[in-house]
Amino acid sequence: MKLLLLGATGSVGGRTLELALSNDAFSEVTAPTRKPLAPNGRLVNPITSRLEELAPALMARRPDAVICALGTTQAKAGSKEAFRYVDYELPIVFGKAAHTAGVGTYAIVSAMGASPGSMSFYYRTKGEVERDIQEIGFRSLTICRPSLIGGKRNEARAAEGAALSLLRLLAPILPKKFHVNPADVIAATLLESIIVAKRGCHWIYAEEMT
């Protein structure tokens, strides 16, 4: 099958890319990024600074499934608007483009605590993208809701690093839903979800990805 992967330079997206390229289930992985990725015979790597502008060309490659592992923080993005562009607007733009192009399978990384009614801008945005991606009408939709994500990142997040260390220390006494979710496990879960492609909308929660 052909996979379109959004967010291939992030922690989860990077591991998803590695696992997909080593899995014979995937004949082609298209992963648009800002900077070139390491070459691979099955990798198509368009370079762009405005991801949404590539949507028509990417859909012309006729992917069988889309995985959206896009995600940032307000501190890194620089503003609420810039954060919302990455975590809400792009997933919805590509969701609509994919559905229009006949793609029936979509998987997205959200967050534990996502709710459109949340007082937190971060969790409210995640809840809104969950709500609106469901309205598009995919035959198979998977929404992963991890807790804090463990694994290598391309940028330092000091507060998140401290929280990860604390969660690992307290793991023996914490409920499983508060354990660290390794990027490897989330990536494998995403790939399994699009290979199986169960009909309907399915949530996969943090305690299932420890």
Rank of each mutant, 00 (worst) to 15 (best):
Thr100Trp: 02
Met1His: 12
Phe138Thr: 03
Tyr205Ala: 13
Met119Pro: 09
Ala38Phe: 09
Ser115Val: 02
Lys152Leu: 11
Ala101Asp: 09
Val29Cys: 06
Phe138Leu: 07
Leu191His: 09
Phe121Asn: 04
Leu21Lys: 04
Thr73Asn: 07
Met1Phe: 05
Ser120His: 04
Ser49Gln: 13
Glu155Gln: 14
Glu208Val: 09
Pro36Thr: 12
Leu17Gln: 01
Lys152Arg: 15
Thr105Arg: 15
Thr73Glu: 07
Asp24Pro: 02
Ala20Asn: 04
Asn181Pro: 08
Ser140His: 09
Pro36Arg: 14
Ala206Ile: 06
Arg139Tyr: 08
Arg168Ser: 11
Ala82His: 06
Leu4Val: 03
Lys152Phe: 05
Val93Arg: 14
Gln74Gly: 04
Phe121Arg: 01
Ala111Gly: 14
Gly10Met: 00
Met1Ile: 01
Ile186Met: 04
Ala171Val: 04
Thr30Cys: 14
Val185Ser: 10
Val129Cys: 03
Ala38Asn: 14
Val180Arg: 02
Val93His: 11
Val29Ile: 11
Leu191Trp: 05
Gly137Glu: 10
Arg15Cys: 00
Arg131Asn: 09
Ile92Cys: 06
Glu28Phe: 03
Ser165Asn: 10
Ile186Arg: 03
Ala20Phe: 02
Ala20Thr: 04
Gly95Tyr: 07
Gly104Ser: 15
Met59Pro: 10
Ile67His: 06
Leu3Lys: 03
Asp132Gly: 02
Lys76Gly: 10
Gly102Val: 08
Ala75Gln: 15
Leu191Cys: 10
Tyr85Ser: 14
Glu18Ile: 01
Val103Pro: 04
Pro116Met: 01
Gly117Tyr: 01
Leu51Cys: 12
Pro91Val: 06
Leu4Met: 04
Leu174Ala: 08
Ser193Ile: 03
Asn181Gln: 06
Gln134Ser: 10
Gly78Gln: 15
Ala101Tyr: 07
Leu167Ile: 05
Ser118Asn: 13
Ile136Arg: 04
Glu128Asp: 14
Ala8Gly: 02
Thr189Phe: 05
Ala187Phe: 05
Ala111Phe: 02
Glu208Pro: 13
Val12Met: 00
Asp87Arg: 07
Ala98Met: 07
Ala183Gln: 03
Ile204Phe: 07
Ser147Glu: 12
Val196Arg: 15
Leu169Ile: 08
Arg124Val: 02
Asp87His: 09
Thr100Ile: 08
Asp64Cys: 11
Lys2Ser: 11
Leu169Met: 15
Asn45Met: 13
Gly104Val: 04
Leu70Val: 07
Pro116Ser: 03
Gly127Ile: 03
Pro36Met: 14
Glu18Val: 08
Ile108Pro: 01
Tyr122Ser: 01
Phe94Tyr: 12
Lys198Phe: 09
Glu18Ala: 15
Gly71Asn: 09
Thr189Trp: 01
Val29Arg: 05
Lys126Tyr: 00
Ile195Gly: 02
Ile204Trp: 07
Ser147His: 14
Lys96Arg: 15
Phe94Pro: 06
Gly113Trp: 01
Thr125Phe: 00
Leu19Ser: 08
Gly7Val: 00
Ala159Gly: 11
Tyr106Gly: 03
Ala65Gln: 10
Val103Tyr: 02
Pro172Asn: 08
Ile47Asn: 13
Gly117Trp: 02
Arg42His: 13
Phe138Trp: 04
Leu148Lys: 06
Val44Ile: 14
Glu207Ser: 12
Ala188His: 10
Leu148Thr: 07
Pro56Thr: 05
